[in-house]
Design a protein around this nucleic acid. Structure first.
Lengths: 328, 328
DNA sequence: CTGAAAGCGCTAACAT
DNA sequence: ATGTTAGCGCTTTCAG
């Protein structure tokens, strides 16, 4: 087992000082061209790899960016991660992905570990719940909150989605084509987004003078299973003629319930999803949905990463109702 | 800006040696219980975070695992990454994801950077092409090749898919229901998997005594766009009555072409995809496909990570033909 | 039980 | 243009 190749080992090999090697390898002008060439060649021959650890320990920082996501199979998160990762390749960053499964404890653990490796920034979809005091000190790690925002003393940089208008539009659209019993499945008040989406839904009902039916409003911890079981219940009750979803996982879960229920039901219940996985356009003649501009969010995130460290900025991108399903 | 909290700063604060702090914080028995308690409390108060860099520099290794994927939006890769990431959370590993976009240069760069951070292992889907000499020395980083395998001097650990039987079955199935003009879209010979899948396709034709039509066999660098354009061409030519795909991206691309072509065509052309995104089951009454057991692959990868460092093992999981679309 | 010294790989700041 | 020193945060080794 040959030992690690370091600037020192190269220096010894070449009979020069390790500083010269360091300089040669980092394009410092103060090296004789000939020396530099020799060093560079020998380094390549020996298979020298610079140690990120040593750099980090000197306080030069790392090129590590953390990404905390509930999961990465949901196409929205996958697309976000993909776009971000591409940007990272370009900027020579490392992207560390941590899955939180919307569990606050996992989230805190992940942040802690990101701190340990001195990640320069963490982009996170905050999990529902109270983070507690445990992790007040984020040191120099910049935090960017995505989609959801945690109320907190110091203002954090946030990239949010303004989906209230779109959700309202969805309800108004449904009412416009005759629906009078419109169900809603969304996150509960543990998330600010849960609250605002529900109120947008209600505001839509109000605007279209459709009666709010308490039994048709389902809120809870947002997940695929939650969406599926709520939708199943709604279908069984046979009261609602339309369903509006307020959440990525929920939408996929609810849609699955519809698909599982089969043809008969599909034609009776109008569905408005949340997020726009590629296949929504093709399923059942096209699934209507609240579109979120994923790439815009991702680009903005990159932007905030590059930009000055001034935290506290907050941007919001409008969601948009996409009506589909003209065919059948 | 308060400086970083280190064992030394804690030691000074407490008026003891930094060694005692180190011991206390790493559960070394040789510390007076009272001292330990004081240290632990103070560390928590101050918000101490241990430095992964310092540890790494001492040669204690890192808890970093690299994952090199063409992209992460394709549901197969997303699922693999998701399962792997969950395992990483459990084992307190960091998962660094690098997107190669099937570009060998990006791949080499990513590996290089993984080396710099002293990743303990890299799980990679090798990009087509020749890696060249540049990166012979992987040091202590264990490499696990996924899905595809690069021919190389030293045997690398590999997790492969044995899809030849399934592809053969697909052709035989199509022939069995009457198809005589079966098209194929797959990767070219730059990938060993490309070669073997194509030969499986041909073997299927042979077995069912269906004539091979050269014009209906499309190979090239595997990508969504490639799949889409080949499928479009096939549809335009109106010769083929069935299409078999040999690749994840290709399958989604080709399917998109079919969907874009609209209803008329859908009923004329039988489609067998590759990989099994969740929506295949629901689209067009169910898309037939070559199923790959993603989670099995992911679990195996975790397994190999944990297992002894003995590289060179090679496992292969069988793919399976899933026929769907009875309805319409 | 506690402490002092050394060294992991690297570079900024001074020497030469 | 090149060399020396020191120190980043940590643990191992050897002394108390």
């Amino acid at each position: 087992m040959s030992k690690r190749v370091t600037i020192k080992s190269i220096a010894k090999d070449l009979g020069i000082s390790h500083m010269t090697v360091s300089r040669a390898l980092s394009d410092n002008p103060n090296v004789h061209a000939k020396t530099r060439e020799a060093v560079v060649r020998r380094a390549a021959e020996l298979g020298y790899v610079k140690s990120a650890a040593a750099k980090a320990m000197r306080g030069d920082g790392t090129k590590i960016i953390g990404l905390l996501l509930p999961n990465i199979v949901n196409e929205f998160y996958a697309r976000f991660a993909n776009t971000l990762a591409e940007a990272c390749e370009e900027g020579d960053y490392h992207l560390i992905i941590h899955l939180t499964n919307d569990d606050i404890e996992l989230e805190q653990r992940s942040l802690q570990r990101l701190l340990e490796v001195q990640a320069m920034a963490a982009i996170m979809v905050p999990a529902p719940g109270d983070p507690g005091e445990s992790l007040k000190r984020l040191g120099s790690m910049k935090i960017i909150q995505l989609i959801r925002q945690r109320r907190s003393d110091k203002p954090t940089a946030s990239i949010l989605v303004d989906d209230e208008a779109a959700i309202r539009d969805a309800v108004i659209h449904l009412a416009g084509i005759g629906h009078r019993a419109i169900a809603y499945i969304g996150a509960d008040a543990a998330l600010s987004s849960g609250r605002s989406r529900l109120s947008a839904f209600k505001s839509g009902l109000l605007a279209s003078e459709v009666t709010e039916i308490a039994e048709l409003i389902h809120v809870g911890s947002p997940s695929f299973e939650m969406g599926r079981s709520c939708a199943r219940r709604i279908l069984e009750e046979r009261v609602a003629t339309a369903i509006v979803c307020g959440g990525f996982e929920i939408s996929n879960g609810a849609l699955t319930a519809l698909l599982e229920a089969g043809k008969g039901v599909l034609e009776e219940v109008e569905f408005v999803g949340y997020g726009d996985p590629s296949f929504y356009a093709w399923l059942m003649g096209g699934i209507s949905t609240i579109r979120i501009p994923v790439d815009d969010l991702a680009f903005k995130a990159v932007d905030m990463l590059d930009g000055d460290a001034s935290s506290g900025r907050l941007v919001s991108f409008p969601a948009e109702l996409t009506v589909r399903g003209g065919v059948s």
